[in-house]
Design a protein around this nucleic acid. Structure first.
Lengths: 206, 206
DNA sequence: GAATTTACCTACCGGTCATTCAGCAAAACA
DNA sequence: TGTTTTGCTGAATGACCGGTAGGTAAATTC
């Protein structure tokens, strides 16, 4: 959060031709799709341009530099993320999220790749991931605390359970991406939530 | 496992100067260190060369191509991995592993980066990660089955518990790498193993 | 219609990338 | 001593990278 407006949308400035906002979003979506396939480091301006059917310089017309494009793309992704996070107002919603994710591997891939790439020095995804972790764990801990107070039946604190749930979701996603058929994301997430809430062993889930 | 010997160690062939095996390993270690810092995609031959104090061509003398170097480096890393996996012969060992990992962030970084990068198309780390996942989960499931039979007290099957434990370790490592001070890896891993084994809530761990 | 602003494109530049080639010094053996 | 093999270096190549400069067509206002 160093800059208030990383890449402000183009605004009308005088009389000339009005800016077409559609292309901008097309480019951002193409960039995010490319990230999910090849990673941020592995994505070139040319690849993004090719995807939207523009020349490399056409892309550079909408975003002053590669870096600016990355940041804008992450900001766009962030909007969606924030909206999804609001849905986690009860523990069961985590399982629903896992079910939804199981139907959109590209999003999961993008998230997993960004999380790891943010670890490398001065990567544009670093802040995005850090913020995301903070928000997710906080939201999750709040939900757990509202449901169980300061200590879950299993003995875990809300903060611990939130960290574990977040971690498990990330890790399960990785295993699922490597082998979608033999990893049942919702079942595993559901199992963990049950166990953390100290639910009695039901022999149901596969 | 396509090739039996990806990069065979140099062997004496005639009378001339004997090959010095030391340099090879130096280069591989430098490559792995560089991967941990910048990722595989972000690592150039020049960067590896600089780290060992050689010219780019000096590195290429020991390995025919960049690709060969990557594969050899991953194979080297794999040897260590296999040895560590043997130690997981009881559930408590997972916590010890977490404690050990908390003292060597570079190894954890390397592992996390490789796991994610292996997701991108035809990446040399793909096979490495896939094999690793298979081994870890199998070993873990075997240990859990030996200790608890076909169903843990919490109701989870050994396979489920193994997947969850592996996932949680990976996810916790990510959170820890982003914020080492506020994430207690061994505590969280210990908590999860306790919960999975259906242990009564002890108010001990922080 | 003139002025202006957007939305591109082609051409170009310097840097970095992996890879190849030619060569040289050191080390072993005959 | 001569030969062979290893372990390098220096120079060159072509692909690709992000970024700049300059130009053109379309859209909009005056």
């Amino acid at each position: 959060m160093t800059e208030p407006e990383p890449t402000p949308a183009p605004t009308r400035r005088g009389r000339g031709r009005p800016p077409a906002t559609g292309r901008r979003d097309e480019i951002l979506d193409a960039a995010l799709a490319e990230f999910a396939e090849s990673g941020v480091q592995g994505t070139s301006l040319a690849a993004v341009a090719r995807r939207v059917g523009l020349s490399q310089q056409g892309v550079l017309h909408h975003f002053p530099s590669r870096e600016a494009l990355l940041i804008a793309a992450l900001a766009r992704r962030d909007e969606v993320d924030v909206r999804e996070l609001d849905g986690l107002d009860e523990t069961a919603a985590v399982v629903e999220l896992a079910e939804r994710n199981a139907r959109r591997p590209e999003v999961v891939r993008l998230h997993s790749l960004l999380t790891a790439e943010g670890l490398t020095g001065d990567h544009p995804a670093s802040d995005y991931v850090r913020d995301r972790y903070a928000r997710v764990r906080e939201q999750l801990a709040r939900t757990l605390r509202a449901e169980h107070g300061d200590r879950l039946p299993s003995g875990a604190t809300p903060d611990q359970a939130a960290a574990l749930l977040t971690a498990a979701m990330d890790g399960i996603q990785l295993q699922w991406l490597y082998d979608p058929d033999s990893v049942d994301m919702p079942a595993l997430v559901g199992l963990l939530t049950d166990v953390l809430r100290g639910a009695p062993p039901e022999s149901g889930r596969s």
